[in-house]
Design a binder for these strands. Structure first.
Lengths: 234, 234
DNA sequence: TAAAATTGTGTGAAAATAACACGTTTTTAG
DNA sequence: CTAAAAACGTGTTATTTTCACACAATTTTA
């Protein structure tokens, strides 16, 4: 009976989180201005290390909770990054997470405590290590998934209007969409339930507030729906 | 300046490979009957450990080469598995790879030397550790990707006929497809080039041999194409 | 009170899809 | 030598989906 494998290499395992948010106008990333070594003062993703006796998935949930104060948020594995010199301190392999949260559910005080800020995707700062590469891959993944799966709702409040949803999609793909076709396509999925309320915050005509049919959402999540016209996913 | 991170947990990192092949009739997996500890005599995926000073991606290529004798084959990361007790010998996190190869390019002697066998997907044996879970996820991924991307060609020889391609898709989705619609859909992608030759191995009418337009293939790989009718991806 | 901004719904042309028919090539049975 | 059987290639048509654009309704502001 083996006690240990006869292999010399044991490695520090990190988890890094790419957390997307949407403020109604622009896509944002939750980034941290580092107040710890290494690379103090520079910007990075938020992360942590896998603990002894902790499942990888549990570690992911823990770190997301520590960093956002939120539980049961949407996340999936993006990719595992393992270049030898990706971290100058010591060799670290990083399991990179891709997460979507409702920006308004996020406590700004919690962010301050972490030295974290919501930064517009379009004018994000340079990040340390291979974090830029991670973010680029995450944007690609977001565009891919949102075109086929009803993933966008994760970024919106519980009640939302179709024009708000459209603005989100326009932000994700950085392109204008036809209002009438978008509305029909979204409604035809049957995932939206009319709450009977209207968006009283609006300055002009108040749009209908919908909520997600959670049951259908869970059930049809993987039945791809082609939300986008003519998206050539690069 | 930090020398090492102040964190106690360093872990063995494995790579496990799910290698799909197609023999013209059925989908197959390259599995190994273990002649090493642990779990000697049982079936498992093929894998290896990440080495000191070796990029994760390089390790993936190395292990795939060691196990198949093939270079430059299609692979991507499937997922990283990290349950605490997934490996009874010692804690191991496994980066799981998803690979497609042309079964006829694979040297049977190399397989024998590895104690590896091509096993029909449908009657595969029980596998050790969490390898069953990995295979199930890989099948899901294969179905997902093949419905949207021209990934199936990776499983075929350089020259192939449309009926052969159709049989592959029928094997992947385990459902019959209309010959005429399938043919038109595939040809309309413009990815196939008529070689002018015919499949002389056929026992009946000899079908046209096509080859892949490599340039278009690379370029359009991510421009999803909807190869399948009515696939509700579960 | 009219203009401006925004929202909801409708309509017809074009394109994609699905269901189905027919003719051709090749081997095999007699 | 011939007819039947099997597999392949292409065509047709109805249906569905998508796209581009029009119009009416609601609400605030000038």
């Amino acid at each position: 009976m083996l006690i240990k494998y006869d292999h010399p290499t044991r490695i520090l395992l990190a988890l890094d989180c790419i957390i997307f948010g949407f403020d109604g106008e622009e896509l944002k990333l939750l980034l941290v201005k580092r107040n710890i070594e290494p690379e103090i003062g520079k910007w990075s993703l938020m992360g942590g290390f896998l603990n002894e006796g902790e499942d990888l998935e549990v570690a992911a949930e823990r770190i997301l909770y520590e960093r956002t104060g939120l539980k049961e948020i949407y996340f999936e594995e993006l990719q595992t990054f393992g270049k030898v010199n990706r971290d100058p301190v010591e060799r670290t392999v990083s399991v990179c997470l891709f997460s979507l949260i409702n920006i308004h559910a996020h406590n700004p005080d919690a962010a301050k405590a972490q030295n974290a800020y919501w930064i517009n995707l379009k004018n994000r700062p340079n990040l340390i290590f291979d974090h830029n590469e991670m973010v680029n891959l995450a944007i690609e993944r977001l565009r891919y998934k949102a075109a086929l799966h009803p993933i966008g709702f994760e970024l919106l409040p519980e009640k939302f209007t179709i024009p708000q949803l459209q603005k989100l999609y326009e932000a994700i793909y950085d392109m204008p969409l036809d209002r009438r076709n978008f509305s029909r396509k979204i409604l035809s999925t049957g995932l939206l339930i009319d709450t009977g309320e209207k968006n009283e915050n609006s300055i002009t005509k108040k749009a209908i507030l919908y909520r997600l049919d959670q049951e259908k959402y869970q059930k049809h999540f993987n039945a791809f729906l082609n939300f986008m016209p003519d998206v050539s996913l690069s």
